[in-house]
Amino acid sequence: MANPSDRAGNPTLSPRQLMVMRAVGHRGFIIGAFVTALYVFMAVAAPLIAPFDPLDQNLLAKLAPPVWQDGGSWQHPLGTDSVGRDYLSRLIFGARISIMIGFFAALVSAIVGTSIGLLGGYFGGRVDAVVMYIVNVKLAMPGLLVALALVSAFGSSFVTLVIILSLLFWDRYAIVVRTLSQQFRNQDFVLAARAAGASTARILFRELLPNLMNAVIVVLTLEMALAIVIEAALSFLGLGVRPPNPSWGLMISEGRQYMFFRPHLVIAPGVAILGLVIAINVLGDGFRDIAAPEDRR
């Protein structure tokens, strides 16, 4: 209970200030944030930094070698693909697709999963039984197969891809949020809010939810990384992003037939996926470390 603020008569640092201080001192978080920021910058500024239009074909210059191989030139640092599109530009524009699909899939599933978990955890009883039943059904489904089936049935526009990927990922949010709300629902501040005449919606979204946000953000980063990998996998199988759009998974698939004499056509998008996924994971782990819940005393 002893608190220096009693003596000084001034408040100590706010939780936000402390979090910033912890973030600055956390190497993993800084590295993860930096690399993720690089990818996001690449995605946002793609038209400015990419030397060519990623869709422009030039059949005269197809399969140009990268700069480090014989015949390579700085005009196409990573060479060109089988229809003569500048590979570096496609790689840069590919960041847009990966990040957009990954982020929106993680976000939509976060909204669905958090709402379901919040209801089950707070109300308990029959509501919780229904929630757990739905979660168990989800866990029993072979998710990737269902996703493949749905994509082949409904096509693979951006929106359907995001929706189908969200259906794969909401369960982890639901379980995490449900457990946390069970812990919080009987805490005195929730009772105090009820005794203050707060509506159930207010208690759920204004009192409980802010206390769960850190956990949701941690899950969000991990699920976003997973969504990026699955998008790449779907695109590789030809069920994700449609050609000629530059998706990294699609690029690996297209480069596959040339991988023995132009290995970078497979390696470059592979490294791009690997780097982004690792960076997001490290960022999420770091966030978990620095986001000490404010009620930790």
């Binding site: 005195d188 501040f189 009772l191 005794a195 802010p210 404010e294």
Partner: peptide, 15 residues
């Protein structure tokens, strides 16, 4: 009717 709880920190929303 309004309450005062035993654990003062627990009775305030930390967020």
């Amino acid at each position: 009717v309004q309450p005062i709880f035993q654990d003062p920190l627990g009775s305030l929303n930390p967020r």
